[in-house]
Amino acid sequence: MIAQVKDKFHQLFEKDPVIVTSPGRINLIGEHTDYNEGFVLPAAIDKKIIYAIALNGTDTCNVYALFNNEQRSFSLKDIKPGEGWINYLMGVVYQLQQRGFEMKGFDCVVSGDIPIGAGMSSSAAVEGGLVVALDHLLGLGLGRMEMARIGQLAEHTFPGVKCGIMDQFANLHGRKDQVMLLDCRSLEFQYFPFEFSAAYKIVLCNSMVHHSLASSEYNVRRAQCEEGVEVLRAYYPGIRSLRDLNAEQVEQYKDKLSPKVYDRCLFVTQENERVGKACAHLQKNELDEVGRLMYASHEGLSRLYEVSCPELDFLAGLARERPEVAGARMMGGGFGGCTINLVEADKVDEFISFIQSRYNEKFGKVPEVYVTSIEDGAKIN
């Protein structure tokens, strides 16, 4: 892929580029907790967005996307939300301008192998890769957490998805063979070794359902959680978000919340508790216990948070039938995308064959399956 991107860049712009690789991410557990100031346990993976990029001495930014062979341009003097994928790049440039940095025009070619709509956060990889590139080319001196904030705000203001910080954080802070516990309020984090990489593989099974509902429903879920906090603040005056409550406290005032808002709040508080338990089990090398928490997470996402779909539920159910699977759950915003499965390394082929066969019987399509590894975050190559 790097060679392809370089070749296309030379062909279009006839100069030498800087190369940036920017990974997708998995999230072992802790879904829809980030925008509730809770805890998440993500990692960067070996699926990547790749940039070839160089300054061009003008006020225009020219971008060629290899994934759809489309070239788009925008002026630094008039950046406003547009249509499609270019929004993610324009949003980054706009946020840098808002911080007072003098932007300069650039030429770039972008490609990658992160499946779109599969819940591996291709958008954060696009954002993170560009901010790393511009920081390098313009000598901005940005810290990694500030870069993550820029990517998050870019997504808020241009594509209009009110995402939490997890995806951008994981993209920029990834470390090979380690997952990261992130406190989404304080932004403090610590690494936990994923010491099972020889015995187990992280296998992502794509439902092949594009999560077209995810963006709009994501914002609905966020609003429901905020509504719950407003109601519960009457009984717990010091709370700022669901992060400040446990599941028992939510249950105590169930009758004060609408049924949907109660379910959302209960899920988030339970999920935060599961993240803490998962870290304790990782430290003790208790992968089976982590797996049980993953299955419980999926149940909550499906029944309480209602962001699953029949295809994802079916995939998670198939995983439960397999003794070689330690745990599985849907991953990402929901309504499609992938399940994440922890599968014994020597049984991966057998697992894939089973999943694809049974899923095809049920839904008439063969799911794509990705065997991934945990890798470093976005970087200059």
Rank of each mutant, 00 (worst) to 15 (best):
E306A: 09
P310Q: 12
R292N: 15
G337N: 04
S302Y: 04
L293E: 14
D263M: 11
F351V: 10
E311M: 10
D263C: 13
G337I: 05
V275Q: 01
G334D: 08
E273H: 08
N341P: 10
V261K: 09
M331S: 14
G291M: 00
R322V: 05
L266H: 08
Y295Q: 11
Q283N: 13
E350W: 00
N341C: 06
V307R: 08
M294N: 12
E289N: 13
A326M: 15
L282I: 04
F335N: 08
D313Q: 12
G300D: 09
A326G: 09
V275P: 02
I340P: 12
L342H: 00
V290S: 11
H281Q: 11
V307M: 13
V261Y: 04
Y295S: 05
H298I: 08
S297G: 08
H281G: 00
V307Y: 05
V307L: 08
Y305A: 05
E289T: 05
S308K: 01
Y305R: 10
C338I: 03
L266D: 10
E286V: 06
G332L: 05
D349N: 13
E271I: 07
L315P: 11
F335W: 10
E289R: 09
A319N: 14
A316K: 12
A316R: 12
P259V: 08
M331F: 04
F267I: 10
L342Q: 00
A296E: 15
V307C: 15
H298R: 06
S297T: 10
D349L: 05
C309T: 00
V275N: 07
C338A: 07
S308W: 03
G333C: 02
E306Y: 10
